[in-house]
Amino acid sequence: MANIQLKAVRKSYGAVEVIKGVDLEIKKGEFMVFVGPSGCGKSTMLRLISGLEQITSGDLLFDDELVNNVVPAKRGIAMVFQSYALYPHMTVFDNMAFGMKLDKTSKQEMKDRVQKAAELLQIDHLLDRLPKQLSGGQRQRVAIGRAIVRDPRVFLFDEPLSNLDAALRVQTRLEIAKLHHDMTDVTMIYVTHDQVEAMTLADRICVLRDGLIEQVGTPSELYENPASLFVAGFIGSPQMNFLKGAIAEKHNCTTLGIRAEHIEIADAADAEWTGKVVHAEDLGSDNYLFVDIGAGDPLIVRRPGKLETPLGTELNLRPIAGHIHRFDANEKPIR
């Protein structure tokens, strides 16, 4: 249950600067997701907050208290790692109780806390097993359980789902969301490169690029009002269509962005673009049409229902009013 503030935080390794001055406030009990392409600094940010990496300059505050030089164990954090990082030679119980043992917590309290967390995660029948006797999903739960028993102020997740298969990933995502609902006081920070995870879990998302924050906002803010071309392209699936040149100039911008779901099929009379369907993807509930309108990459158009448009069909298209995104030469939005 901590309010976290980063003030002008920088991190460099030798001459290479990875975090180039970040200001951010994470509210108490908030679920904040750091998202961005690989190498953007999102994991470094998490490690700076955890204390595993030292901040080069700037301030990090937990509940208004400066924690720059506080060791990780004293920050009241718990961390779930990408590889789960369970101690291979310890049973599930010992894995979860290791921190408390080092703290010299009483045996009874140790037992109670492990038991409670294990029940919450439905792993109480596995307490005597070794990590190698567990499935990937079970290991993930033990890792989360180990974090819960620490009773942290801040819960840190470093791409915790990337080692799970697709089905398990969705299930665990739901459980993490539930955990967030149950532990209303606990601030959670979650790192991922997967924008779907970010959109579904986050209260707020922080998009990072090259060691700087591109935008912070709720998922719908990011979706509806991206603060840059980069965010517009990064959030949303399929990726937003970007049109340049004459098409963009008609709207007085350098780049025109329009999402696949915001393009509708129009009459020839009020069509803005026309082109042939060159490729189509049928997802059952939706289908995506790739329409070549003679402007670089084909335009992706999302249509509800089953695919009924044969390849080669000539389509007249137009953007839904109020849903176009215009960007200037500096990749910033024009409002």
Binding site: L52, A73, I77, M79, F81, A85, L86, Y87, L102, R146
Partner: peptide
């Protein structure tokens, strides 16, 4: 693995531990 060591650090383990 680095992450095991980091997990131990978060758990409060000193280098000797």
């Amino acid at each position: 693995p680095t992450e095991i060591e980091e997990a131990a650090i978060v758990d409060g383990a000193t280098p000797w531990v």
